[in-house]
Amino acid sequence: GGVGTTTSAYVAPKTVWLLAMKAKGLEIAGTFSRRGGVIHMELSLTNKAMSVMTDFAIQFNRNSFGLAPAGPLQVLTPLSPNQTTEVSLPLSTVGPVMKMEPLNNLQVAVKNNIDVFYFSCLYPISILFVEDGKMERQVFLATWKDIPNENEAQFHIKDCHLNSDAASSKLQSSNIFTIAKRTVDNQDMLYQSIKLTNGIWVLAELRLQAGNSNYTVSGVLERESYIALSYMELALR
């Protein structure tokens, strides 16, 4: 987390997605971010081969949320042996859709002058949380009431020491919006909404007890809810 009001959405450290030994010397590490309402795939390309690499291009397979490169992979100069270059690739969500297992799985093809290579990676569902995800209070109440009990998923977050206001503010930096807060029997109940890029809404209740560092998160609506909610733990930390 950051200091004061300068908190921003959590971005995971890069992990290796493509091993050099499986890609004729090309190693790719990456992560995902959402900045200014734009999703980015942040890539480090390393040339571990003996010869120069050129002519890079990238393509995604169809995926659950229609993620697609919004432009070409910009590797402006040839990549010399032992050289690493950082590339930030903006993504759109208007690509072809196909439900993947798991839902946030992304299959990627990268080519260079040597060959075409394939890898898959998992993106955090939070990159799909849009900035206008604060649901009208009236709509929230009506929607919550209409949802059958069996659509509710619940999980627990242990050892989190934020109070409800700090949690609310931290979650808002990840586009998880608090619509109402109530205190009942010494428990703070935060009612929250999330909107995904494909228009699906997730409604959540975050329950915190004063002096207890364990939170309970309950969420409702479609299957995306569960992975959306599991992100809350990362966002809070």
Binding site: Q138, L141, A180, R182, V184, D185, M189, Y191
Partner: peptide
């Protein structure tokens, strides 16, 4: 904040979730 009945509705929701 305007008293549009929603404040009360959220209180009832929280109450019903805590003491179903």
């Amino acid at each position: 904040e305007l008293d549009d009945g929603l404040d009360e509705a959220f209180s009832r929701l929280a109450e019903s979730r805590t003491n179903p």
